[in-house]
């Protein structure tokens, strides 16, 4: 089945970030979203280790004090600020982050998120994921639609330990854009060349089809 590359998932996700928003990007694929902002859009990226207003990943020499939460060196944009961890999570928990984009291992049809612990590998670490899942005003999960073995990651019930229950608003995958509605999952957009039947076959719970279901504009 054709599907989006990681870069195109990041690009499609970047379109969800509104002008003027404060946005936190999780480790992994979400980090790449910073590189795909539409031309001229002002967004303040928050790194929970204490930066508001970083740009992208920096090519400059490694500065140990200027990293994002994934340890990558970052550029500062005009208007950037620094703060300590307690202030950073006051910003997150207190609802001052407009959008968080996190990676996912599983998302349930109610919008439960599991993204920090892999039982078969015997481990995982939580970092700031639970605080972001609870505190961000809007939570987007950007992830591969299925596991490497083809098993659905969008499931009826998460089998992995939760990051938070009922927290996900939108799921962007290599196959589709799916909104979490009070009554269940709504298929809004399809990746080019992918059918609604193919997305449903790769998804455990039933998907409702949006009245204006369309191909993703990339």
């Amino acid at each position: 089945m054709p599907g989006l590359t990681r870069e195109l998932v990041a690009l499609r996700t970047a379109r969800e970030l509104p002008e003027g928003a404060v946005v936190n990007l999780g480790i992994g694929l979400p980090t790449e979203v910073a590189g795909f902002l539409p031309e001229g859009r002002l967004v303040l990226f928050q790194a929970e280790n204490g930066i508001l207003g970083y740009g992208g990943i920096s090519d400059a020499d490694y500065d140990p004090d200027r990293i994002n939460a994934g340890g990558q060196p970052v550029d500062l944009l005009p208007g950037a600020s620094f703060f300590d961890s307690a202030s950073s999570f006051a910003m997150i928990r207190g609802g001052h982050v407009d959008v968080a984009v996190l990676g996912g291992l599983q998302v349930s049809e109610r919008g439960d998120l599991a993204n920090w612990f892999v039982p078969e590998r015997g481990g995982g670490s939580v970092g700031g994921a639970m605080d972001l899942a609870v505190g961000a005003r809007r939570l987007i999960v950007a992830m591969a639609h299925t596991t490497r073995d083809g098993a659905p990651r969008i499931v009826s019930e998460c089998s992995y330990p939760l990051t938070a229950p009922r927290c996900v608003d939108l799921i962007v995958t290599d196959l589709a854009v799916i909104e979490v509605m009070p009554e269940g999952l709504l298929l809004r957009e399809l990746a080019p060349g992918v059918s609604a039947e193919e997305v449903q076959a790769a998804t455990e719970p039933r998907l409702a089809l949006a009245g204006d279901l369309r191909e993703m504009a990339l």
């Binding site: 929970e48 961890s85 950073s88 999570f89 928990r93 481990g123 939580v126 970092g127 700031g128 605080d131």
Partner: peptide, 20 residues
């Protein structure tokens, strides 16, 4: 940790900062 020779209390990062 995997050998069971050290104890770990995992705390969400914001909760860790606020507890301190």
């Amino acid at each position: 940790y995997h050998a069971g020779e050290v104890e770990l209390e995992l705390v969400p990062q914001g909760t860790l900062a606020e507890r301190i």
